[in-house]
Simulated assay, not measured.
Amino acid sequence: MEQLHPVILLVDDEEDIIEFMRYNLEREGYKVYAAKDGLEAIVTAQKVYPDIIVLDIMMPEMGGVEACRELRSMSPFQNTIIAMLTAHGNDQLQFTAFDAGADDFIAKPIRPRLFLSRINALLRRKQPSSPKRNVITLKNLVIDREAYMVIKNHQNISLSKKELDLLLLLISKPGKVFYRSEIMMQVWGHDEVIGDRTIDVHVKKLRDKIGAIHIKTIKGIGYVFSV
């Protein structure tokens, strides 16, 4: 689940600028995704969880400042590096972007060496406590441990603490059969007295929320998570 290369999301409504940035970044080994406006950027970010988002300020549908503000309101992106891309030197516009949560500005027109140096410098700022470590991606499921939420097919699904604990246990070793006694101990511990029915109810709730296909019953033994 660990990504080998830093992931960058480029957001600009001008395709030639996107391709120019992509070309230079991919030459340096970065994994690059692109979006054409703020709305698409928010959807894409929830799929790929980038290390850096480069947002153009002026775009149709949703501009960079509004997209930045929206991303910052979402738990997984509160510490993601966001750099605003702009051809304008307007101080007020920059103040507004910083207030929305932007970390830095990159000036247009793009100068490749300076652009790459700025991206590298921004990555060095990235804190090791990035929320990415609290996000797990498994095919069509994104599990946000801080928000007690699963994102499936772009839909946010809220989980209770026990549901999340149960899911995290099962996905810790996909394909492994977890015995009921093991689930009881790992999720509920010594201090709570529960029966098999409690486990079954929580499994049913998880299946209803994330899809029955992922959690299989091994009759008389326990449960296994399948991707």
Rank of each mutant, 00 (worst) to 15 (best):
R197E: 13
H190R: 03
K216N: 10
R197M: 12
H202P: 01
I199R: 05
Q186G: 00
R207L: 11
D200V: 08
H214C: 03
D191S: 09
K204Y: 13
M185K: 12
I210K: 06
H214F: 15
I210V: 14
R197I: 12
I218R: 09
I194Y: 05
A212Y: 07
I213C: 03
T198Y: 04
K205S: 15
T217S: 04
K209F: 13
I215L: 08
H202K: 07
M184C: 15
V193N: 12
D200H: 10
H214P: 01
V193K: 12
G211W: 13
L206F: 10
I199V: 07
I215S: 06
H202C: 05
T217R: 11
D200M: 12
D191C: 04
I218K: 13
G211F: 12
D196Y: 10
I199H: 06
G195W: 07
R207M: 05
E182Y: 04
I183T: 05
G195D: 09
D191N: 12
E192R: 13
V187R: 03
E192Q: 12
K205N: 14
D200S: 15
S181L: 03
I218P: 01
I215N: 04
A212F: 14
D196V: 06
M185G: 03
I183A: 05
T217W: 08
V187N: 00
M185P: 02
I210S: 11
I183N: 00
V187T: 00
E182I: 14
G195L: 11
S181N: 07
I194M: 01
G211N: 08
V203F: 07
T198K: 15
D196F: 05
M184K: 15
H202E: 12
M185L: 10
M185S: 10
E192W: 07
H214W: 08
K209A: 11
D200G: 00
